[in-house]
Simulated assay, not measured.
Amino acid sequence: MQNLLALNWKMNKTPAEAKAWAQEMRVGLTQPNAEIAVMAPAIDLPTLAAELPPAVAFGGQDVSQHEAGAYTGEISAAMLAELGAKYVVVGHSERREYHGETDAVVAAKAVQAQANGLTPIICVGEGLEVREKGEHVSYTLGQLRGSLSGVGAGLVVAYEPVWAIGTGKTATADDAEEIAAAIREELRRGYGDGADSIRILYGGSVKPDNIAEICGKPNVNGALVGGASLKSADVLAMNEALK
């Protein structure tokens, strides 16, 4: 299964900056060793659609749980799809924490994404307190179950331990594999043999110097990359590390 590098820019890069990044990738990316997809602010997506090299996909950082209507400030899955987006992140820990998104809301967003031909990247993961109690596996699987209600098999799961996001702390490759293997088993309960083709990503302070070890584990099929996604040189180095 080919690794997926899902690059989450968060609230960074103006359209002009996105254009410069895309042009750097067009020059520098000679051999994609992984599938690369940029999850950018919505305002950047038309620029990326025009400027990215053909080998690089793009997607949204969030999507509405509603099809259309009086939902000021929200962006529908149909809007993302019409731009040419392939993926959309749902349930990122920052959306869950700062915007109060529940598992049910995350599932509804994923259903909308799939209904419009997008692949949702469903994020799950525990905080430090949960991990220190040794409850990280049960917590994460419970979150996953709640976030998959009504969702078909065309998805990606991203395990992002909240304590490792933007902190410089990184779960070890074995930590990532422990949860990824548990997620795989949970997916098999819901999707049978189809679970073996669902990619499971690790997210949390991923860098060029640790990505190969993390993605070398049997059940880790790529990474959800935050800070290291902002510099094209770092993305190219991560791609090179995965050859």
Rank of each mutant, 00 (worst) to 15 (best):
H136G: 02
S232T: 13
E97F: 07
Q2C: 01
M238P: 05
V105I: 14
E126W: 04
E97V: 13
L224Q: 05
A34F: 14
S197H: 12
E213G: 08
A85W: 01
A233V: 13
T72E: 08
T72S: 13
Y87P: 11
A233L: 03
V106S: 00
P15S: 07
A85L: 07
A110I: 04
S229M: 02
E82F: 01
A237G: 13
H92T: 04
A158F: 13
L5T: 03
I214F: 12
D44H: 07
R26C: 10
D62E: 15
G59I: 04
W163Q: 11
E185T: 14
R96Y: 06
A68N: 06
Y191R: 08
A195Q: 04
G168R: 06
K231Y: 01
E82W: 00
E67Q: 14
Y98R: 12
H99R: 12
V206L: 10
P32R: 08
G204V: 02
V56M: 00
V235N: 04
S197F: 02
G152Q: 14
G190F: 03
M238Y: 14
N239L: 12
G91Y: 05
R131I: 09
G152R: 13
S205A: 02
N8T: 12
A85K: 06
H66M: 10
P32Q: 06
G192T: 02
L242D: 06
I200C: 00
G73D: 10
A6K: 01
D174T: 14
T72L: 12
Q65H: 08
L5I: 04
G84N: 04
G117D: 11
L118R: 07
E67C: 07
A107F: 07
H99D: 09
A18M: 11
E240G: 11
E67H: 13
T14V: 07
V90K: 00
V88T: 12
E126N: 11
V157T: 07
L224S: 06
G134N: 07
A107L: 05
E97S: 15
A173E: 04
A181W: 00
V38M: 07
G150H: 10
A50V: 03
A20S: 15
L141D: 01
T14Q: 03
E213M: 11
P41R: 02
I200D: 00
A228K: 02
A171G: 15
I183C: 06
A78P: 02
G100D: 10
T30V: 10
G150F: 05
G125L: 06
T170M: 13
P218A: 07
S76R: 08
D209T: 11
T172A: 08
D175M: 05
G142D: 03
G28A: 14
A78L: 12
A50M: 13
